[in-house]
Amino acid sequence: ATNIVGKVKWYNSTKNAGFIEQDNGGKDVFVHKSAVDAAGLHSLEEGQDVIFDLEEKQGKAYAVNLRIK
């Protein structure tokens, strides 16, 4: 899926990971530091509006192509 709108639920820069809550009510999506880095960002803030694509690896959904809304 592409161009999904959501809000950062939480992001821990020590653990280099967090979750994004989908505005469409879907399951929360894992976001890794690699996606944050690829977006040219240093970190994510709780409640921040984002747009992202979903990629599945080994049955788990990940946020990729992250951008700030």
Rank of each mutant, 00 (worst) to 15 (best):
N65G: 03
N3M: 07
K33P: 06
A1P: 10
N3A: 08
V50M: 06
V50S: 00
H42R: 12
G26N: 09
L41S: 03
G47L: 04
E56L: 13
D37Q: 14
L44E: 01
F52L: 02
L41D: 01
D37E: 14
E45W: 15
A17H: 15
R67S: 04
W10H: 04
N16L: 09
S43F: 12
F52K: 00
V8C: 03
K9F: 03
V31R: 00
L41P: 02
H42E: 12
Q48C: 08
S34P: 04
H42L: 13
S43I: 11
V31W: 02
D49T: 15
D37A: 13
K27N: 10
Y11C: 04
I51G: 02
A63H: 01
L66V: 08
A35W: 04
G18T: 02
V5M: 13
A38C: 09
I68F: 10
V31Q: 00
G47W: 04
K60V: 09
L66K: 00
I51W: 08
A39T: 05
I51R: 04
K9D: 00
N16G: 15
L44S: 01
D53M: 03
N12I: 07
I20A: 01
G18H: 02
D23V: 15
V31K: 00
Q48K: 05
E55Q: 11
A39Q: 03
I4Y: 07
L54K: 07
F52W: 01
E45R: 14
L66I: 12
L54I: 15
D49N: 12
A63V: 06
A17R: 12
A35L: 03
L54V: 13
Q22S: 09
G47Y: 04
R67Q: 07
R67M: 04
K27L: 10
S34T: 12
K7T: 08
A38M: 09
I20S: 01
H32G: 10
V31P: 00
V31T: 02
D28C: 11
N16M: 13
K15H: 10
N65Q: 04
V29Y: 06
L41M: 09
N12Q: 07
N24Y: 08
A39V: 06
D23P: 15
K27Q: 11
E46F: 11
K7Q: 05
G26M: 09
N12L: 08
T14E: 12
A63I: 04
L66M: 03
T2I: 13
D49W: 15
K15L: 15
H42C: 14
K60P: 03
E21W: 11
D53N: 05
Q48F: 06
S13P: 14
N65K: 06
E21M: 14
N24S: 10
Q48I: 09
K15D: 07
I4R: 12
A35S: 09
L54H: 02
L44R: 00
K7F: 06
A17N: 08
A39W: 03
E55A: 12
Q58N: 15
V50C: 04
Y62V: 07
F30C: 06
T14K: 14
K60D: 05
N24R: 10
G26E: 09
D37L: 15
D28H: 09
K69I: 14
A61P: 08
K9T: 03
A39F: 03
G18C: 03
H32I: 06
L41F: 10
L44C: 02
A1E: 09
E46Q: 15
G18S: 01
E21Q: 14
V64E: 03
D53C: 04
N65F: 03
K57R: 13
S34D: 09
V36I: 11
N3R: 07
L66T: 00
E21Y: 11
L54E: 02
S13M: 11
G59P: 01
N24G: 12
A35K: 03
E56C: 14
V29H: 02
L66H: 01
A1G: 11
N65Y: 03
G40F: 06
I20T: 00
A35T: 09
K69P: 12
G18E: 00
Y11R: 02
D37S: 12
Q48R: 05
Q22W: 12
G47T: 03
T2M: 12
K7E: 01
E46N: 12
L41K: 04
I68A: 07
F19T: 05
R67V: 06
E56G: 06
E45T: 13
Y62L: 06
K27P: 15
D49K: 15
N3Q: 07
G25Q: 06
G25R: 07
A17M: 15
Q48N: 05
T14I: 12
D53G: 02
Y11N: 02
L66E: 00
L66Y: 00
E46P: 15
V36T: 03
W10Y: 08
I20P: 00
G6H: 00
G26C: 09
A35H: 05
V64Y: 05
R67P: 01
I4W: 06
V36N: 02
K9N: 02
G6S: 01
Q58M: 13
E46T: 15
G6R: 01
Y11K: 02
A17D: 03
K15F: 13
Q58W: 14
Q48E: 08
I68L: 13
F30S: 03
Q22K: 08
V8N: 01
V50W: 01
S34Q: 09
K15T: 10
H42F: 12
V50H: 00
A38F: 07
K7A: 04
T14N: 12
N3D: 11
K69S: 11
S13K: 14
Q22N: 07
A61Y: 15
K69M: 13
Y11S: 03
G26L: 09
E46A: 15
K15I: 13
N16A: 12
K57T: 10
L44P: 01
K7V: 08
G26F: 08
F52D: 00
K7I: 07
V29C: 03
Q22V: 14
I20N: 00
S13G: 10
V8P: 00
S34C: 11
V5E: 12
A61N: 10
Q58S: 12
I51N: 03
V5S: 14
Y11H: 02
L54C: 08
N3H: 08
K57Y: 13
K27W: 08
V50G: 00
N16H: 13
N3T: 06
R67D: 02
L44Y: 01
D28N: 09
N24E: 08
V8K: 00
K60Q: 09
N65W: 02
S13L: 11
A38E: 08
D28Y: 11
Y62I: 07
A38T: 07
E55I: 14
H32A: 09
E56V: 15
F30Q: 05
E55V: 14
A39P: 01
G26T: 07
V64C: 06
N3W: 06
F19L: 11
K9M: 04
K33L: 05
K60I: 09
G47P: 00
Y62T: 08
D23A: 15
K57D: 08
N24H: 10
D23H: 14
H32L: 08
F19D: 01
G25E: 06
E46Y: 12
Q58T: 08
D49H: 15
E45Y: 15
G40D: 05
V31N: 00
A61I: 15
E55N: 08
Y62D: 02
N65V: 02
N16F: 10
T2D: 06
I4F: 08
A1T: 13
E55F: 14
E55M: 14
N16W: 10
S34I: 08
A35V: 09
D23E: 14
H32M: 10
I68H: 05
A38G: 06
